[in-house]
Amino acid sequence: MTRISLHVNGTAVERDVEPRTSLADFLRESCALTATHLGCEHGACGACTVLVDGMIARSCLKFAVMCEGREVVTLEGLADDALSDTIKQAFHESHALQCGFCTPGMLMAARDLLSRNPIPSEDQVRAALAGHICRCTGYSGIVHAIILASRRLIPVE
């Protein structure tokens, strides 16, 4: 076991981990933060997406031990985030989730896209979601929600 200390959602966390423990398993099992979902565990589905030092990351493709000293933010950590609120509201109104398994990753990807590109085209939204798989195939609602959120974020003159 290796002792690691890092910040998770702004709180200092110190734990013993096996080097092979993924950041995703660490968040779910050691930190009881279960908004981060594990689908494929090899970087294909996007459900486990989190922020590491502000950069979007797949937590199944990081070992927790590599995150020593980092700032990790999960969907729980964005509960008071205005941009996330706008996106969540738009998801709600656009029926952008069915079973909800992919939703945490979709929300993280949507927030990352809109923070870099506040007025994306539909093609850009679809490209940004290409690494996120919804097995309910509810993509139309998700794309619609992100475009709706984008419109609401544009200041009205």
């Binding site: 996007g46 997406t49 950069m55 979007i56 990351a57 493709l61 990352d112």
Partner: peptide
């Protein structure tokens, strides 16, 4: 290359 979450790392 791949997706933004991959490109960041």
């Amino acid at each position: 290359i791949a997706y933004r979450a991959i490109r960041c790392h």
